[in-house]
Design a protein around this nucleic acid. Structure first.
Length: 97
DNA sequence: AGGGTGACCCGCT
DNA sequence: CAGCGGGCCACCC
């Protein structure tokens, strides 16, 4: 296990600790394909794996991004983990723009 | 700020 | 079985 892109994504996301947030591009990069940022989100969407903290994965512009169960839920979960979010943006995240 | 293109995966036709 | 389009995105113009 861990040969395919998806498997790598699972591993990377599963390694995200409580209160930490990573961007889709960062996950994609760690998974071996920096340009597969879109695929990462798609994988979560089509295969919402239980036990996988996909809510800790946000956009590279610090916006929370989408969520299978709803963006509102995603924000709530992140806040409960100690992540400061304001106006749909993660405070303290280095956005590229 | 908005639109268009690029890269990758999955489901449907 | 093969092709097309859409999606929890990112970057450039």
């Amino acid at each position: 296990m861990g040969k395919g892109f998806k498997e790598k994504v699972y591993q990377v996301v599963a390694k995200i600790t409580k209160g930490e947030v990573l961007s889709y591009q960062d996950v994609a990069k760690k998974a071996g394909s920096p340009k597969a940022c879109r695929a990462v989100g798609n994988i979560m969407n089509r295969h919402h794996i239980k036990g996988l903290p996909c809510h800790r994965v946000i956009r590279s512009d610090a916006s929370v991004g989408g969520y299978f169960w709803g963006t509102k839920k995603k924000i709530k979960r992140l806040k409960e983990e100690g992540v400061k979010i304001e106006s749909g943006k993660v405070i303290g995240f280095k956005k590229r723009k």
